[in-house]
Design a protein around this nucleic acid. Structure first.
Lengths: 157, 157
DNA sequence: TATTGTTATACTCTATAACTATA
DNA sequence: TATAGTTATAGAGTATAACAATA
């Protein structure tokens, strides 16, 4: 965005819209958060088409690749607390995307499974996610994208 | 954490604590969010010593490097909405860390400045942040850390 | 005694509408 | 008319405590 009337720019540091954030930009945390938010933003937009929030997508995808997974395991994997997952699971159940079946070996737990409708929606959503990722990181080459993922995993693994 | 009794691991996919999240790990967004959260977690812990939240630190640092900056400019730079910055600024003012002076050329705005106490605290916090960054990304070499920052900025710039 | 799933609830963060005073 | 700062408020996200059923 080219700014208008740059004539009166004086020596005063924050006079117009020029803010010096060069120090914050030296911090990994600042950059990771900014990049994360910019990708999540696109994620939210495109998942809204399916009526899914980001965490809904994560749940569907994990259930798809781990049929019979329990709520407790989802919580541990996604960093969500059990009480906050209850309503989310119930909503996906009500929409007919997942099923809660009695766990084969633990009477307390429920095994989660995708319904055919859930399989279908999850498949579409995963394709959308793959495309979205490329779009949201369009300034990266394929190699850079791989490097970025490798370094990010090195941080949190 | 070594898991106990791995003997009874059967063919059932999500029987114990083994969850397959390999698909999610192919997504930049997932990895960026996980890495971001793991760094922010350490950030919160160490900033708590100064009674600062992450956003408080960002505000102090931006005011330090941009004396006279306005609330509006902080909002634009940090992605915070104006109503949500009001209480935050007021609290830093009450603590004697920043001052709100009338803006020299715009009667509606207030220019923000650090007090001597604010300068002091911000300096300490910035040093803590620099050390924290290295600790929170200890598995990265200095070169990898630089590369990571460059790629993250390429995503959101 | 410990754990799964659940309810109720509180706290924080983020978002929207509307007002005031200045531009 | 538009913008800076503010108030009030609503909504989403995240947190803890406690309970019933089962291990």
């Amino acid at each position: 965005m080219a700014s208008a009337s740059p004539k009166i720019l004086s020596a005063s540091p924050a006079s117009t819209d020029t803010v010096d954030n060069s120090y914050l930009r030296t911090l990994v945390g600042y950059n990771a958060r900014r990049a994360s938010l910019s990708i999540i933003e696109v994620f939210m937009e495109r998942m809204a088409v399916y009526g899914l929030k980001v965490v809904d997508f994560s749940v569907l995808s994990l259930v798809a690749h781990n049929p019979g997974i329990t709520s407790r395991q989802l919580c541990a994997t996604l960093g969500v607390l059990p009480p906050n997952l209850v309503g989310l699971i119930a909503a996906l159940d009500r929409r007919g995307l997942i099923e809660r079946r009695p766990h084969p070996s633990d009477g307390r737990a429920m095994g989660l499974h995708l319904t055919p409708a859930g399989e279908d929606l999850c498949g579409q959503a995963e394709q959308t996610a793959a495309q979205l990722e490329v779009d949201a990181t369009a300034r990266l080459t394929a190699t850079e994208r791989k490097t970025l993922i490798r370094l990010l995993q090195k941080v949190y693994d």
